[in-house]
Design a protein around this nucleic acid. Structure first.
Lengths: 324, 324
DNA sequence: ATAAAAACTGAAATCGATTTCATAAATTGA
DNA sequence: TCAATTTATGAAATCGATTTCAGTTTTTAT
């Protein structure tokens, strides 16, 4: 079904049908007959033709490092809800943590396949920053802070600081840290800085891990090899903490008594493992929703002013921490 | 940048540039100069114009009941990987479990916005079946079986049967069942049927729940109220089982000794809670990948023959089950 | 050497919508 | 009443690509 066929059936011109669809001038007589024909035929305008003509695709490109992650899928749920409400579609680009794929999608998207881009970022290389800045559709960065670009991110520094203070208040004065690469500014550098501000530790209390459970497990093993007198442990993510606890349990080290553990994320898992994790809760779905709202504002109102929104957190005190 | 500008800069016709892009006849001389101009300008063809002209959008619509779910996000990861390899894009439609949204998206998609549809289905009403059958782009159903349509689904009956037999072999002869609505043929009816084939139980050993942890918790409470002598418990999903175990723990009922628990799903959580769950492992990512491959075959080869693929499962025996 | 086949080219039509433009009909105002 | 608005209309241009078509040049085969 094309607009021409509808026009033909209704005995009017294509322009009239188009006006009917877009609230232009149209007489009641024609409005009625066009409406009837469209109902009968179930006609839906070709969105590609509309896009070509109007330059608006009503699609938002969403670039994610991976989809099968608790936090990211919650962010996407938040994004998708707001987009749905506003009749936008979600074009999902899953990069499987490959930076070159991120650059590739940025390039594809900036060239006008989508009306705007939401980029859930992890590691921002110079190439990334360049690509982001040269993006000629609205873009918002989610989960990382960057200057001169709209960003929505979490208070990683503050969360790490507060969690570390909580450990200290519980008498934990020798605290180990298992973190991720500083290249990831949010989950790496910021969290480490927050930790260090609260607790002056020496380098051999710090271990690096990837984002996996096994990574947390192995890093904990290395940490305790170097350093067997810690009584507190800060993990940059819940998953790392769960790996850490797995190792500690195997070594018959009691959590929270011998070593209290905190982490960031408030994943579903954090409340289900034993002991339940003391974590900082982030507002994943909300931050996704906020990003979507902002990007739609940017599209609609030509409201290109840059926002920098730092989301807060909530410390959830559970059984993985105890007083010494 | 448009093809006309490239043609102008290169001193050739639009047709020549198009032929260069689509491996048509083109002399080496022109090929070189066009290549140079395209490299310099970073030109990327407008995909909406291509779509309009060729009728191929290279987009696959994926309809999901929700995105922030362990199993579904793994399915999507599998889909996305295969689509990515084949240069297809993923247009995500998240229906938040609202059937009317599923119908709406089916209607939008069938009308030619995408080249094909992958539908992760839960409850198939008659309206759904009608919409699916009248879909005039290739469609594959994921997670549910339906006649006359390509489907990829799991052996829910077999998995439930084997898990129940496992309970029986461990001396569990009074087994409760916590399931979901029969309207969900796969997770509801099929699993219950598999259970019943292995174990002849009476109606008051069966409770219904939704898919949530709290649902499992409450259903277990109701079940034990009616029926306090069960020694085995079958839960239709891991999440339900985790809720059930939460309740049992609170009542100081030992799992697995007093009541052994099995469930279906092999979620990440199932290995992390204590006791670790005995579950049937499904091949989520693989089934997603398979669906994507099949749908691409259908598009490319006009290979519209219907497939019905039933994926197997693997029973993972863990500590939530013990001999009586 | 010459006919036949293959390689190459650009102008113009096309995909399905929106929008501009020129113009006509209906309404308003003094 | 008649000029000035307002409302209504369809033909044609447009968005940016691909494809057909008609024709030219080059290569191949005999």
């Amino acid at each position: 079904m094309t607009i021409a066929e509808i026009a033909e059936k209704a005995g009017v011109s294509k322009s009239a049908v188009s006006r009917y669809l877009n609230n232009g001038y149209i007489s009641d007589k024609k409005r009625e007959i066009i409406q009837k024909v469209i109902e009968e035929t179930g006609y839906i305008p070709s969105s590609q033709a509309q896009t070509l003509r109007t330059g608006k695709s009503h699609m938002i490109g969403v670039i994610v490092p991976r989809i099968d992650s608790d936090s990211i899928s919650r962010i996407i749920a938040g994004i998708s809800e707001v987009l749905e409400e506003n009749k936008y579609r979600l074009l999902l680009a899953n990069t499987q943590n490959r930076p070159e794929k991120e650059l590739e999608y940025l390039d594809v998207f900036k060239n006008g396949n989508v009306d705007a881009v939401i980029f859930i970022a992890t590691i921002l290389t110079n190439a990334h920053k360049k690509a982001i800045k040269s993006c000629n559709v609205p873009i918002v960065l989610l989960g990382q802070q960057m200057n001169d670009i709209s960003c929505i991110y979490n208070d990683d520094f503050g969360a790490a600081y507060e969690l570390t203070k909580l450990l200290l208040e519980n008498g934990r004065d020798k605290i180990g840290y298992i973190g991720v690469t500083n290249k990831d500014k949010a989950a790496g550098a910021e969290r480490l800085a927050g930790f260090k501000k609260a607790h002056n530790t020496n380098a051999d209390c710090i271990e690096l891990s990837d984002f996996s459970l096994d990574g947390g497990y192995n890093a904990t093993k290395r940490l305790l090899n170097k350093n067997n007198d810690i009584n507190g442990l800060f993990c940059a993510t819940d998953t790392i903490a769960i790996g850490a606890i797995k190792f500690l349990k195997e070594q018959n080290i009691s959590v929270p008594n011998q070593i209290s553990v905190v982490s960031i994320g408030d994943s579903k898992l954090s409340q289900l493992i034993s002991p339940r994790l003391t974590t900082a809760k982030y507002y994943y779905a909300d931050s996704g929703g906020q990003a979507a709202k902002h990007i739609i504002d940017m599209i609609n109102k030509e409201n290109k002013h840059i926002i920098q929104t730092k989301f807060g957190f909530e410390i959830c005190v559970r059984e993985s921490v105890s007083k010494i």
